[in-house]
Amino acid sequence: MLKGALLGFGAWKKGVSQVQVKGRLAPGPGGHQPPRPLGWKPRLFDEHQARTVESLTDRIIPSSETPGAQEAGVAEYIDLILNDGPPGPRNRFLEGLGWLDGLALRNYRAPFVRCAANEQNALLRQIQDSPFFRQIKDLTVQGYYTSKAGIDELNRDGVPDTYACPHEKH
């Protein structure tokens, strides 16, 4: 039913019909090598959606000296939260994924997950004021900074408060 909701989304269908022949849809830029295994079993997303969310979350919080959102398993968390949560946010999110792929296909003739890094960043800049961006960013922040990796990232240069003020004045 939820996958059906995605296929029924106008932007996605339009995008597919325009570019599916000459675009990068089928084999992908990596040629013929088999795709990297997902490593987790989505409850809500299909495989394409799951990989798209992994890419999206990792664009929002990439790896640096510490792991990024993909390594921290944020996509799996978002899949769980949306699957077990109320239908409104769930459907808005799935529609948003389709909408984003539609934009990607229009701009770069490839779905988001197959766009190059600079193309993905350009797409995210383009949608930064959209409700969908706000939703995926909020979920990514929530998922990342409640993970072990995210907490370690927060505390990289933090100082535990001893509640004993070191300043002479006050």
Binding site: N155, P160, T162
Partner: peptide, 8 residues
């Protein structure tokens, strides 16, 4: 500010 997540 050098915030810290977690105890104390």
């Amino acid at each position: 500010a050098h915030p810290w997540y977690g105890p104390p």
